[in-house]
């Protein structure tokens, strides 16, 4: 009975993650179609540019509403880098800022009903995590050369412990992109799935549907927090990895 009232198996809570082709594009046999995911990325970029470029066009000494928001983001990320990396982190500010804003807007736009969350796809989060991982590794080797391998030897560990510690450190280093990608992906996936599942209970329960509806309302607030928090976590971990690469230990 219940499955009939809300449309049966067709409306799976995972359906919202489905990628739909909007404009088919193929170059050299490679499918790079413009999809709903790509559309949301374009919207996110457009909104960020609108806020950061159009919002600050007056360059007012006393900021207006939009400039105040733009400044708030700027100072938030600037403080984040200063606190974790220090003054050498300024060079990486544009990248961290872009990363933070891109993920934040991707997560937040995903909260809009009927939209799509591009950060809920492992391909996207893993690609971003790999860029961070490879970038940090290259940075580390460029700065310290082969001395960079001393990152895998925790200071103050006796030599007889090295055979145990070094593999642990190497594995933990190599698992960084996986944990970085999985954290964002899983948080977005779980949150949106949960919202969808509870939203599905609302029509199914009839008058008693007010309870899951209230829960969905509360959960939406929590998801907003998580959307921000995951962008923050991604950015701060990137900063910490950069700090590791710059200062080793």
């Amino acid at each position: 009975m219940a499955t009939d009232t809300h449309g049966g198996e067709k409306h799976s809570p995972l359906e919202q993650f489905e990628i739909k082709e909007l404009i088919p594009i193929e170059i050299g046999g490679n499918d790079i179609s413009f999809t709903n995911s790509a559309l949301m990325m374009v919207i996110a970029v457009a909104l960020i540019v609108l806020l950061m470029v159009v919002g600050t066009r007056k360059q007012a000494m006393i900021p207006g509403r939009w400039q105040a928001i733009a400044e708030m983001f700027y100072e938030f990320v600037a403080n984040l880098i200063r606190d974790t990396v220090g003054n050498e982190g300024r060079k990486y500010f544009p990248f961290i800022f872009t990363l933070f804003m891109f993920i934040l807007f991707g997560n937040m736009l995903g909260m809009v009903p009927y939209s799509f969350t591009f950060t809920s796809h492992i391909a996207v989060t893993f690609a971003m995590a790999m860029v961070v991982f490879l970038g940090v590794t290259i940075l580390g080797f460029a700065k310290h050369g082969l001395h960079f391998f001393s990152l895998f030897v925790p200071p103050g560990v006796p030599i007889w412990m090295w055979p145990l510690m070094i593999p642990i450190e190497v594995i933990s280093y190599l698992s960084r992109p996986i944990s970085l990608a999985m954290r964002l992906f899983a948080n977005m996936l779980a949150g949106h799935t949960l919202l969808k599942v509870f939203a599905g209970f609302v029509p199914a329960l009839g008058a008693a549907g007010i309870l899951p509806l209230a829960f969905v309302g509360a959960l939406t607030g929590l998801e907003m927090l998580i959307a921000f928090l995951q962008a923050y976590v991604f950015a701060i971990l990137t900063c910490l990895y950069i700090n590791d690469a710059l200062h080793l230990h």
Binding site: D31, I32, S33, S37, A123
Partner: peptide, 8 residues
Amino acid sequence: TFLSQIFW
């Protein structure tokens, strides 16, 4: 769709 996602 991975290639398209990463491309965009």
